[in-house]
Amino acid sequence: MRHHSLRSLLLLATLLMGCSSGVRVNVLEPARVNVGPAKRLVLVQAEGQSTVQSSIARELELQTRQIGYFAFTDQTYAGARVNVSGEKVELQGDQAVALKPGEIGLRIDVLGWDADLQRGQLVAMDANGKIGARRPSRRELYAATLILGVTAFNAEGKVLAQDEYSGRFETARAGFLLRTATEQLVDRMLQDLTPRHVSHFLKLDDGDEAQRAIIQVAEQGELEQAIRQFKGYTEQHPDNAAGWYNLAVLLDASGDYRQAMHHYSRAISLTSKDSYAEMRDACVRRQAMRLAMRE
């Protein structure tokens, strides 16, 4: 991997934390529901009140565009039926369109929608939760409940999740109640599906004065140059645990987890520092996250 791609793909940044030296990387990790490498959501089937269905489809299109991770396609026009049997899904219907690799299918059922809007009153309170005025302001408040059942599955027909999303929603404008409800539930659903970048601080060992100049190179974002210098350093000082550890950290930051773990182990064999073992274990977890994203 070339220098420029390390910066763009890994979004490498540097950060000093107190007196600690190190590099910070953003690692893409699965959300609660692991969708693997899929980058497109396909609404295959929607059941229940039609106005709620339409609002859900609009919110999915809007929010996926805003988040920028998934593309979204509404394929309900094909009339496919999502038949769930255990952990498998079968698409039925003459016009059913099979999912392509990289697509996640959705079936969304409107299980409950309180269309009889309940009207109440909201009393304006001050910051301490008390009615501050002699004549407190009151305004009408509309409330309703929405319950959605969501089934997510991949192109191989494997069920990834079967979840229920529900909530009671309030607004002062009755015309915005459905939009408010679907907006919030779709947001929760997408949080469960959308992988996110998680920031990790990888601490370097700056105890050896002879290695600090190379560490500074790494902290300035010149990762490949620092890796080359640490490789040269460890060749000249094969019994220096910090050299092997720092080389492992930078390989870890570059995403070369296999080589990083090899060098972490080499460093651990030369010293008993707990922090070395902790960083190796964290590298193992980062590698597992990468593999999960590829499944």
Rank of each mutant, 00 (worst) to 15 (best):
A161P: 05
T171L: 11
R196M: 05
L185P: 01
Y142S: 02
L148K: 05
M189N: 03
V186S: 07
L177N: 01
L202K: 04
F169C: 00
P195R: 02
A152E: 04
A213Q: 14
T180N: 11
G149R: 12
E140H: 07
S166R: 11
H200T: 08
G157A: 10
F201V: 08
H197S: 03
Q216N: 13
P136W: 07
A172G: 11
E164S: 10
E156L: 14
R173Q: 14
V159T: 14
G167D: 00
G207I: 01
S199A: 08
Q216G: 15
F153D: 00
L141C: 04
K203N: 07
F153Y: 10
N154S: 12
L148C: 04
L141V: 07
S199F: 01
L146E: 00
H200C: 03
Y165M: 01
L160W: 09
A144I: 03
V198A: 12
E156I: 06
A144K: 02
I147T: 10
A172S: 15
A210I: 02
G149H: 08
I147R: 14
G157T: 09
V217L: 12
L185W: 02
H200R: 14
L160N: 13
K203G: 00
R212H: 08
Y142K: 10
H200G: 02
F176P: 00
A144S: 15
K203Q: 14
E183K: 15
Q191Y: 08
V217P: 06
T171Q: 11
A161W: 04
R139A: 13
A155H: 14
D208P: 05
A161H: 09
N154M: 04
Q211H: 07
R196H: 09
A181T: 04
S199I: 01
T180Y: 06
A143G: 08
R139W: 07
K158G: 06
E164P: 00
A172N: 12
V186A: 06
G175Q: 14
G207S: 15
L146V: 05
